[in-house]
């Protein structure tokens, strides 16, 4: 139990760290939205800007979301996930190997 609590605490700290980073990134974009919009909508090679921005935000904000749910105790189930619909087929019966008999 104490181990679980300390794990939650660690997750909460990480959520705070990435949450702070995420807020800073959002504040940076929205405080300078006219400049950001002017560059990200230039098209051609500037297309890399919105794509990269989306990637960067997905890493930082995605990490925040991950640690937030973990800190709140919402974690995946411990039971193994059944991903196959196929049932185990019965083992084929072992048949005796064909042998050559010589009736001489």
């Amino acid at each position: 139990m104490p181990e679980r609590k300390s794990k939650r605490k660690r997750n909460a700290l990480k959520a705070l760290l990435f949450g702070g980073l995420s807020v800073a990134l959002y504040a940076a974009v929205f405080a300078n939205s006219s400049v950001v919009l002017a560059y990200t909508t230039r098209g051609a090679w500037f297309a890399a800007l919105p794509i990269t921005t989306a990637f960067v935000f997905s890493f930082v904000h995605g990490a925040f979301a991950n640690y937030l749910w973990a800190a709140l105790g919402i974690e995946p189930s411990k039971k193994p996930v059944e991903t196959r619909v196929e049932e185990k087929r019965p083992e084929p019966r072992k048949r005796p190997r064909p042998r050559l008999h010589l009736n001489a």
Binding site: L37, T40, L49, N66
Partner: peptide
């Protein structure tokens, strides 16, 4: 997205606002 961004059509503010919610939702 690359195709739309080359044409300068992506409003990154809208994208980021949706992402703020959807990255929480998709993990849940």
């Amino acid at each position: 997205s690359i195709k739309w961004a080359i044409n300068g059509m992506v409003d990154i503010r809208l994208t980021l606002l949706i992402l703020a919610g959807s990255l929480l939702g998709v993990q849940l």
